[in-house]
Simulated scan of single mutants.
Amino acid sequence: MWSDVKNKVILVTGAGAGIGNALVKQLASAGATVIAVARSEAQLKDLVASDAKHIKPLLLDLSNWDKVREGLAAVPQLDGLVNNAGVAIIKPFEELTEQDFDTHFNVNIKAVFNVTQALLPKLRNGSSIVNVSSIAASRSFAGHTAYSATKAAVDSLTKSLALELGVRQIRVNSVNPTVVLTKMGRDNWTDPAKSGPLLAHIPLNRFCEVHEVVDAIGYLLSQKSSFVNGHHINLEGGYAVS
């Protein structure tokens, strides 16, 4: 699977940490040229230090529509795009502020729309777009009201783009994990009182590991998924059937 991305050019947003960081390193180790987009210069420096030959940093704040367009103007032709950047502000509905709402929507869906539209002329025929969504797009979790709404929007956008871009031979899919054990995921879900009720509904009785999300994205970027278009790949250990 990973051999398919050798010599390909792939842009990954949210590359500074977590899933995006691990994905960039995996793609680079497989011989892809990776344009790593993040808003932290320090994180990008660390990424480049791991493989300066294959990892090309791009410092961008995805919440700024015009700056994103300017920053992406010099991007070369692409074989793949991974919209991974996202935020999650977990609060009870009555405590969410207008700023919380805007932050969620500006990054989780508006930036996906903006980045994808800006890069569309640069995507080659046969390219693959992968949006990192969440099982929260289709299932409800306490404190996730705004977050879930944005991920539902990502899933809807994924299907619409799969329809519109299919005629250009550009595939669009999403990966939809449950809790992923990034550093943030581990910090937020170590309390058994919080994690226990959710784990009780997952037949595999565990959360998703970062490499499992990375592998799913790699599959969707590769030719192994050449007839997969408009799908949401649920990574949830059987949660939906429990």
Rank of each mutant, 00 (worst) to 15 (best):
1 M>N: 10
9 V>Y: 06
14 G>W: 09
15 A>D: 03
26 Q>E: 14
26 Q>T: 15
30 A>P: 02
33 T>L: 09
35 I>Y: 12
36 A>P: 04
36 A>V: 11
38 A>I: 11
38 A>Q: 08
47 L>T: 08
53 K>G: 14
54 H>F: 03
59 L>F: 12
59 L>A: 11
64 N>A: 11
64 N>S: 14
70 E>N: 12
73 A>N: 10
74 A>F: 06
78 L>N: 05
78 L>V: 12
80 G>S: 03
83 N>I: 01
88 A>N: 14
90 I>Y: 06
93 F>G: 09
95 E>W: 11
102 D>H: 10
105 F>C: 07
106 N>T: 03
111 A>E: 04
120 L>H: 15
121 P>N: 05
121 P>Q: 10
123 L>F: 07
125 N>R: 14
127 S>A: 13
130 V>Q: 03
134 S>G: 03
135 I>S: 09
135 I>V: 14
138 S>N: 15
143 G>Q: 04
149 A>R: 00
149 A>T: 05
157 L>D: 00
163 L>C: 12
167 V>T: 13
168 R>C: 04
170 I>W: 05
175 V>G: 05
177 P>G: 08
178 T>E: 12
179 V>S: 03
180 V>A: 07
187 D>Q: 15
187 D>M: 11
193 A>D: 14
197 P>M: 00
198 L>W: 01
198 L>K: 01
201 H>Q: 15
205 N>V: 05
207 F>E: 00
220 L>S: 02
221 L>A: 02
224 K>F: 13
226 S>Y: 04
226 S>P: 00
227 F>E: 02
